[in-house]
């Protein structure tokens, strides 16, 4: 397929990119392009211009300092999945990134592009939510930070303003006693999540649960948190029975169905996959 015509800009700094974006309200930001180019080929998106931020070095780093992991927007899924720093500080993110698309897609797709695209069936949003990620964005008036829970607004909609660019994702490094898991039940055609569960649990000295988080992709219009369910595990021994009991109350508001899986089935998948993710996270804690 063949995209419509557009102008092409290749800024060398975030400031320059933001400036071009401010000047071109119909422009789109191009990072890896693996969310954007497919919809442009189908002419479902026809931006007047693309702003290619793929060569801005400032957006390409992975660093860890002061208990905080920072990942630039243009870091690819493959880099995240295989980064020792990420595997150590946010293994959930590495695990989820390693399950996106296929190996070719993972070489090109970026965390910034993924989160900005906000496809609820992709794998990173739930991980970002479960990890309580902070998203740094730049706009004409400077930078600001948004929590992942405030970032995802609706289907393919974020709280990014039209003239803002996501520049960096910040995650608190995992503490001792914490385990996590991302488990996906994939759509056989697209490989996207019919249901993807991201779980984080922390065990105290005695082995009982001191903190838990459980978030889902693929079930409703945005990645959703089921932290109410997860919270009910706090204080428990995280036994299989405790996990089963917690997820039995799981009900995701506004679960959505499509031709491949009904909303009701996705709810059930969420229980099964969610329990599996929690058990695996527990075993890793």
């Amino acid at each position: 397929m063949f995209p419509s015509k557009f102008d092409y800009h290749r800024p060398s700094s975030v400031q320059e990119a933001v400036q071009i974006l401010s000047d071109n309200p119909d422009a789109k930001v191009l990072a890896g392009g693996h969310s954007l180019i497919p919809v442009m080929k189908l002419r479902l998106a026809t931006p007047s211009a693309l702003i290619d931020i793929g060569r801005i070095d400032a957006l390409k780093g992975i660093s860890r300092a002061n208990g905080s992991l920072r990942i630039g927007a243009c870091v690819t899924y493959n880099e995240i999945a295989n980064s020792g720093v990420v595997q150590d500080a946010a293994p959930l993110l590495a695990e989820a990134a390693g399950q996106i698309g296929d190996r070719q897609v993972r070489y090109r797709g970026t965390i910034g592009g993924n989160l900005s695209h906000a496809d609820p069936a992709s794998d990173l949003p739930a991980a970002a939510l479960a990890l309580g990620a902070t998203l740094h964005v730049s706009g004409p008036n400077g930078s600001r930070s948004v929590s992942a829970s405030e970032f995802f607004v609706d289907l393919m909609m974020t709280s990014l303003q039209a003239d803002e660019i996501l520049t960096e994702v910040e995650i608190s490094a995992a503490s001792a006693g914490t385990g996590s898991a991302y488990v996906k039940f994939e759509h056989p055609a697209s490989g996207y999540a019919l249901c993807g569960a991201a779980a984080v649990v922390t065990r105290g000295a005695g082995g009982s649960c001191t903190g838990a988080s459980l978030c889902f992709n693929g079930v409703s219009a945005t990645a959703v948190s089921a932290n109410g369910v997860a919270a009910s595990l706090v204080g428990s021994d995280l036994s299989d029975g405790a996990v089963e009991s917690a997820v039995s109350n799981l009900s995701i508001p506004d679960a959505a169905g499509d031709m491949f899986a009904s909303a009701g089935y996705r709810q059930e998948l969420a229980k099964a996959i969610g329990a599996q993710a929690l058990r695996t996270a527990r075993d890793r804690a």
Partner: peptide, 22 residues
Amino acid sequence: LYETAVYDDGANLLSGTMLDYA
């Protein structure tokens, strides 16, 4: 196990790309 062309009640093809048809 995987493949099916899905038309809705109005005969619109819903499984119209490789993203939908496995």
